[in-house]
Amino acid sequence: MIKKLEEKRCELEELEDTNSTLIIKERQSTGEIQEAFTELIRGLRDLSCEGSLIGVKRMGQVDEKPFMKVCKQKFIDENVEVEYAMLCSKWLNALNDSAWHPFKRVGIGENMKEVVDDEDEKLKSLREEWGEDVKNAVKTALEEMNEFNPSGREQDDQ
């Protein structure tokens, strides 16, 4: 019995060593993949200079054009940039606020999915104050973040 116990202890130590080695290799691989990903993004950004047919869009990033358009319509020239910056900042913060969850579940069983709830109070208020285009820009960003960011609405800054 003692001999078997000693054998099992040795096997456990070997398994722990193997596990530690695998964890170290996995971390190295993850680091290498992250470096390659960062380099790929950098290369794509270089390709997407003005006049290029290739562009890079980060999923979950708000299209700011509707914000600028509505600010130009509502404000005098000198206030446009300030109002635009404040409006964008407010909604970028809202998008990154994990406490705000303007989604509802639709479908049945395996077909169940989350979609943006157009009846969400913040979105309704946004549409009433700033228009459908601005609301749709925020809604699109929410949908993309929900679909393409597996870790949720926390965004890394790459």
Score class of each variant (00 low, 15 high):
I54Y: 02
F37D: 10
G31E: 13
I41A: 07
R58I: 12
E50C: 02
S52Q: 04
Q28P: 00
K65T: 12
R42C: 04
I54P: 00
Q34T: 15
C49H: 10
Q34K: 14
L53M: 08
R27Q: 15
R45A: 01
D63E: 12
L47P: 00
I54C: 05
I41R: 07
V56S: 02
S29C: 12
T30N: 11
R58N: 03
E50V: 05
E35Y: 05
F37S: 12
M59F: 15
E32Q: 13
E35D: 14
I33C: 07
G31V: 11
Q28Y: 06
Q34G: 03
V56E: 02
T30A: 12
E32L: 14
C49G: 10
R58K: 13
Q61T: 06
L44I: 04
I33G: 01
L44Q: 03
I41C: 07
I33A: 11
S48V: 02
S48W: 02
V56C: 04
Q34W: 05
R45G: 01
Q28I: 13
Q28T: 11
L53S: 10
E64L: 15
K57S: 11
G55V: 02
L44D: 00
L47N: 00
R42D: 08
G60V: 08
C49P: 00
Q34L: 15
E64V: 14
C49T: 13
G51R: 03
S52R: 03
I41Y: 05
L44Y: 05
D46H: 08
Q34P: 00
L47Q: 01
L40Q: 06
L53P: 00
G60E: 05
S52C: 06
S52L: 04
L47E: 01
C49K: 14
G55P: 01
K57E: 13
K57C: 07
K65R: 13
R27G: 15
F37A: 11
V56L: 15
G31A: 11
E35K: 14
L47V: 00
F67T: 05
L53D: 09
P66V: 13
T38L: 09
C49I: 12
G60C: 06
I41P: 00
E50T: 04
E35A: 13
I41K: 11
E64K: 15
G60Q: 06
S48T: 04
M59H: 12
L47A: 01
L44N: 01
K65P: 00
R27W: 09
S48A: 14
T30Q: 13
A36D: 09
R27K: 15
G31Q: 12
A36E: 12
D46W: 02
D63A: 14
S29K: 15
S52P: 00
E50H: 04
I54G: 01
G51T: 07
G55L: 01
R42W: 04
K65F: 03
S48R: 02
D63I: 04
S29E: 13
R42S: 11
Q61R: 08
F67S: 05
S29V: 09
T30Y: 08
Q34C: 10
F67P: 05
E35T: 15
S48P: 05
S52M: 03
Q61S: 10
G55A: 07
S52E: 03
C49W: 02
F67M: 08
Q61K: 09
S48N: 06
R45N: 10
I41W: 02
